[in-house]
Design a protein around this nucleic acid. Structure first.
Length: 262
DNA sequence: ATGTCAATATCCTATTGA
């Protein structure tokens, strides 16, 4: 069986429910993982998605900030969530499909503006969140699992528009890249997107602040699809839907997709 | 490159977060 998973930081699921519906209609992924829903779970417009066949949803939410949801055409068992680094935020939820595949949906803290935990508490929280992820996956070695989400780090030089100019910018600093690498190693996660598309610049986020995001093209690959080694070979056809960033009233993130033959 | 966008609280403007 082949199934396609998509991940998308939606930046308000209520405001952009029509865009979610458009993506579901045009791409028909089996599973869509959303981040930054910015909504309590009971106010997510699940009925809009159910009408399109996505009758199963597992979600965690809070008022105004954060929030993650997994929409699925197939039944998905709620495996719970973990409040990594004890921030009291809704940033993770996990589910299991009937084929036995576990899905982790993450929204890693953005980390604020200054890349120094001594003066910026949010940066420390981001590093602690990643360290807690690392320790947890060391303790609970994932198998037959997919991890997706807005990890808020662009690890490779070709994951950013200018490696040199972003070395001190939160999302691409060496300490963040190191922390992300340790998390990836602890779960023996394979970066599916880069296994599929190993060469060339690849972005999933473009700032709202650019006058012309498309022309400037100063993007970063913050959104990721990882899989454990036992199923990563089944992945193919990875895509980042850049054109979605150009939709009316868009999210600043584009959806990232991968297909697995399992 | 201090620009744009969204949610909230208090109210139609400021603050916070990204």
């Amino acid at each position: 069986m082949s199934f396609t998973i998509a991940t998308w930081n939606i930046n308000s699921v209520r405001l952009r429910a029509p865009l979610v519906a458009q993506l579901l209609t045009e791409e028909a992924p089996d599973v869509l993982c959303l981040q930054e829903c910015k909504s309590p779970v009971d106010k997510i417009p699940a009925e809009v998605f159910a009408e399109l066949g996505y009758v199963h949803m597992i979600a965690r939410g809070q008022k105004g900030y954060n929030g993650v949801a997994i929409l699925s055409k197939q039944p998905i068992e709620d495996l719970g969530d973990k409040d990594f680094a004890d921030l009291g935020h809704a940033r993770h939820v996990a589910g299991r499909l009937e084929n036995g595949v576990t899905i982790h949906n993450f929204y890693v803290p953005a980390g604020g503006d200054v890349a120094d935990r001594e003066v910026n508490e949010k940066f420390g929280q981001k590093l602690d969140y990643l360290t807690d992820m690392r320790d947890w996956f060391r303790e609970h070695r994932p198998e037959k699992a997919i991890l997706v989400g807005d990890l808020n780090i662009a690890p490779r030089e070709d994951d950013v528009w200018s490696h040199k100019q972003l070395l001190k910018v939160v999302s691409h600093t060496p300490i963040e890249v190191d922390h992300l690498a340790e998390t990836q190693e602890s779960g023996q996660w394979v970066d599916v997107t880069r296994a599929d598309i190993p060469e060339g610049k690849l972005y999933s986020w473009w700032s709202y602040r650019a006058r012309d995001w498309d022309a400037a093209d100063k993007g970063r690959r913050l959104d990721h699809v990882w899989a454990t080694a036992d199923i990563s070979n089944a992945a193919h056809s990875s895509r980042i839907l850049r054109h979605v960033r150009g939709w009316d009233k868009p999210s600043d993130h584009a959806p990232v997709l991968a297909t697995f033959d399992l």
